[in-house]
C-alpha cells in the first residue's frame, strides 16, 4: 500500500510456546486486541517494522502532494482550486500525523526526512506517475485515494496505539478526498466529448498503477504473515485489491467509462470480478527508482528542504532570542 515494500526481519512467525515469556506476553496482548503504547515493551522487530511502515506511509503523504500540487494554479474554477488546495493541505497534515506516530517509536523527524531525501526510505510507487491533465485530479482522488481508503480503514484497528489514532484522523478526511475526485470525474464524464475523452484517458493511465498500490501478491510471504500476526497489516494485498476492483467497477460504469482491462469479468462463484494483474515488472522498476517522475519528485523534496533551511534556522534563532530576553527580564 503506502508502504509497499516493508520487509520484516526474522524467519517467520513463531508459535506462542516458542517465545520468551516477555515476547509471549506481548503477542498475547495483541491477540486479545490490546493496544501497544510507546512506553510498553515491544520486540525490536515490531519497532523496526513499524518505523519503516509508518515512515513510508508518511513520506507517501508528503510526496503525494506533488502530483496534485501541480494543478493548483491551473484548476478550472476558483471553487475547484480552493477544494484542491484543501485536499493537498490535508495530505501534508496526514504526513504530520504519521511522522508523529513514527517518532513515538524513537526515530526523529529529521532522521526520517533525511532517509527520504537520500533515498534510503521509499514512498508509494503511485506518486512517481505524472498528472498530465485536469482529469487526473479526478482520477487521483477517485482511484488513488479510493485505494488508500481500502488499506487505511482496517488500519484504524492496528495494534500500535499512536498509528491507529493517526489512521482514525486520516480516514475521516480521506473520504472527502475520494468524493471530490469522483465529483470531478462526474463533471467531466457528463461534459463535452473532449472532456469525456480526458476522463477515460485518466482512468486508462491510473488503473494499473492504482492496482499496484496494494503491492504484489503476498499469500506466501513470511514477512506479511509476521506483520499480520503483529496486527500492523490487517489484510492481504490480494484481498484488498479484489475489494477495490469490486467497488470501483460499478462506479466506472456509472460514469460511463470503461475499465481498461479486457479480462475484467464478473465471477458469480467468487462473488467478485476476475481481472488482469497490473504490470509487475513496471512496478518493481518504479520501486527501483525508475518511475516516470521519480527524479522530479526527489528533486522537488530536496529543493524544498534545502530552500527552507534559512527559514527553519531563522525561526530557531528568533525563538532562542525571545527565550534569552525572557530570562533576562525575570
Amino acid at each position: 500500500m503506502y508502504a509497499q515494500m516493508v520487509k520484516s526481519t526474522g524467519t517467520g512467525v513463531k508459535a506462542l510456546d516458542e517465545m520468551e515469556p516477555q515476547e509471549r506476553a506481548f503477542q498475547e496482548r495483541i491477540n486479545a486486541g490490546d493496544k501497544i503504547e510507546p512506553k510498553d515493551w515491544m520486540p525490536a522487530g515490531y519497532r523496526k517494522n513499524l518505523i519503516r511502515q509508518i515512515g513510508q506511509h508518511a513520506h507517501s503523504e508528503i510526496v503525494g502532494q506533488l502530483p496534485e500540487g501541480n494543478w493548483i494554479t491551473r484548476a478550472p474554477t476558483l471553487e475547484r482550486k480552493a477544494i484542491l488546495l484543501a485536499k493537498v493541505q490535508d495530505e501534508a497534515g496526514h504526513g504530520l500525523y504519521l511522522y508523529c506516530a513514527a517518532e513515538t517509536l524513537g526515530v526523529t523527524r529529521d532522521e526520517l526526512t533525511e532517509m527520504l531525501l537520500d533515498g534510503r526510505m521509499k514512498y508509494s510507487s503511485i506518486f512517481n506517475y505524472p498528472t498530465l491533465t485536469w482529469a487526473d485530479m479526478g482520477a487521483v482522488g477517485w482511484l488513488v485515494d479510493g485505494a488508500a481508503i481500502m488499506n487505511q480503514v482496517p488500519l484504524q484497528r492496528t495494534s500500535y496505539g499512536p498509528y491507529a489514532r493517526a489512521m482514525v484522523r486520516i480516514c475521516k478526511e480521506e473520504s472527502f478526498h475520494q468524493r471530490q475526485g469522483f465529483d470531478i470525474m462526474m463533471t467531466m464524464a457528463k461534459g463535452t466529448d473532449a472532456q469525456k475523452h480526458m476522463a477515460q484517458d485518466a482512468l486508462n493511465r491510473f488503473w494499473g498503477p492504482s492496482l499496484m498500490m496494494f503491492g504484489p501478491s503476498d499469500e506466501n510471504s513470511v514477512h506479511s504473515a509476521q506483520s499480520m500476526a503483529w496486527k500492523i497489516k490487517m489484510n492481504s494485498n490480494d484481498e484488498l485489491r479484489q475489494k477495490f476492483v469490486d467497488q470501483t467497477v460499478s462506479q466506472a460504469e456509472y460514469l460511463g467509462l470503461t475499465v481498461p482491462d479486457e479480462n475484467l469479468k464478473w465471477n458469480e462463484k467468487k462473488g467478485g470480478y476476475d481481472f488482469s494483474q497490473p504490470d509487475w515488472d513496471e512496478f518493481f522498476d518504479v520501486l527501483r527508482g525508475n518511475g516516470p517522475e521519480t527524479t522530479e519528485r526527489m528533486e522537488a523534496r530536496n529543493k524544498a528542504w534545502d530552500d527552507g533551511a534559512w527559514v527553519r534556522d531563522g525561526m530557531m534563532a528568533h525563538a532562542a532570542k525571545k527565550k534569552a530576553m525572557k530570562v533576562a527580564a525575570e
Binding site: 484543501a86 493541505q89 490535508d90 497534515g93 504530520l96 500525523y97 508523529c100 517518532e103 523527524r109 489514532r165 493517526a166 484522523r169 478526511e173 527553519r312 525561526m315 530557531m316 528568533h318 525563538a319 525571545k322 527565550k323
Partner: peptide
Amino acid sequence: VGSLHAPDAEMAIKNARDVYTRR
C-alpha cells in the same frame, strides 16, 4: 490530539491550528 514540531510556543499554536483544526 497529537504532537508537532515548532521553534517556540507561539508557532506551536499556529501550527496546531493548521494541523489539528482545519475542520
